[in-house]
Write a protein that binds this DNA or RNA. Structure first.
Lengths: 221, 221
DNA sequence: GTCTATATGTAGATAGAC
DNA sequence: GTCTATCTACATATAGAC
């Protein structure tokens, strides 16, 4: 959003400013993910990043700009991974199977959410928080929806006889199930009686569940 | 939680105090549901209820007590409706069918969420917000989990060969799908391209989807 | 780019009059 | 039961020195 920092750089070298900026965004990402937007103060972000209050304002702008910057920083990573997997499936010839489509959409996100790097885990958690909240969706849904729509079209080609609205709904329920593995770990652990492992541990079950659901919906009268 | 108000009543008559208390809890319910806990100030609740700041404190106690009181006020309505439907299915003889179990668990919630009374809609929305958030689940999960576990046991009887952990996970994904119809209306509308109707409009699709998912999971090797 | 300092508003909570 | 008044803390945001 604001690139005051970068605009002072005339050559390609990255100075300490870049590193500080990353630390600020990292801290914001972790705290927004863990506690939500409203419960996270800029002061706390500054403390977590080891900078002063003014520095956060300088790099992040207003609080709402800050969270957008945090999300946008990594949005292309997830989108391009999903696009690449879809392209692979298409390159393999003939319309991709439904199961492969579901796998290709869900797995990259689960991988981020289960990755060793806590920063990527925080990003995945933040997405789950923000995208499923009606208050935030208008501001950020546009970041991820285009790719989801590409998958929806591919699914419609795989199930040409299914009602399009039903298929679209099935995809939104699939996404909700996926996000819940990251956002609702405590609920899942509490109900299933075991400590929740990493989201990737649920991958097979998730894919089976969602595929079964989509299949059932696309066969319904 | 705090029943200072009621404790001053020695006979059965309900004075203005009860009505005021309800107005406070109603306002809190609406605002917590619409904006979340952290974004909602007690002052705003007071304004919405048409009372002064001190009155909210008197009836609701500290902010965290207030939201618990709001949730507990109606928890029995949902729980007993689900229990009643489960009892009906059992009374009908022989283990209930999986589809009936899914229907019986999902439908009462969707009905509340789609009801004319905006107060019940707010309650449903608040549940969706709070139960899927890891930060809140420890404080409120215990309100709804016992009934969910009864359904889980019934599901295990309907699918005795399924792995228990898989079935439990399938139920948590079912719940997540259900909650998303209430909490993530904007996402659903955005992705499916139509204005989201009421959650009940999605009931058939939701049941088909979840049943297909549970079925697939409980057949998996 | 980063700091300190501060302007300005709002938060939760409660004490005490009525 | 309800209101007014206020305490104390913390919030966001920015101006200006370095």
């Amino acid at each position: 959003m604001t690139d005051k920092a970068a605009s002072t750089q005339t050559d390609g070298r990255i100075l300490r400013g870049e590193a500080t900026r990353e630390r600020v965004l990292d801290a914001a990402e972790r705290l927004f993910a863990a506690q939500g937007f409203d419960a996270t103060s800029i002061r706390r972000i500054a403390a977590e990043a080891g900078v002063t209050l003014g520095v956060v304002g300088f790099h992040g702008g207003a609080k709402q700009d800050l969270i957008r910057t945090v999300l946008e920083r990594r949005v292309e990573a997830l989108n391009s991974k999903r696009r690449a997997r879809l392209a692979e499936l298409r390159a393999a010839g003939s319309p991709p199977a439904l199961r492969d489509l579901v796998d290709a959409y869900l797995t990259p996100y689960l991988e981020y959410a289960s990755q060793g790097d806590p920063q990527w885990r925080a990003y995945a958690r933040l997405i789950a928080r923000i995208v499923s909240d009606d208050r935030w969706y208008p501001a950020v849904g546009g970041l991820y929806d285009p790719v989801a729509r590409e998958y929806l079209h591919a699914m419609q080609q795989a199930r040409p006889d299914a009602a399009q609205q039903e298929l679209a709904t099935a995809l939104t329920l699939t996404v909700a199930s996926m996000l819940s593995l990251v956002a609702s770990r405590a609920r899942i652990a509490g109900l299933s009686g075991r400590d929740a492992g990493s989201p990737m541990d649920y991958r097979d079950t998730l894919i089976t569940f969602c595929l079964g659901g989509i299949d059932a919906v696309s066969r319904a009268p």
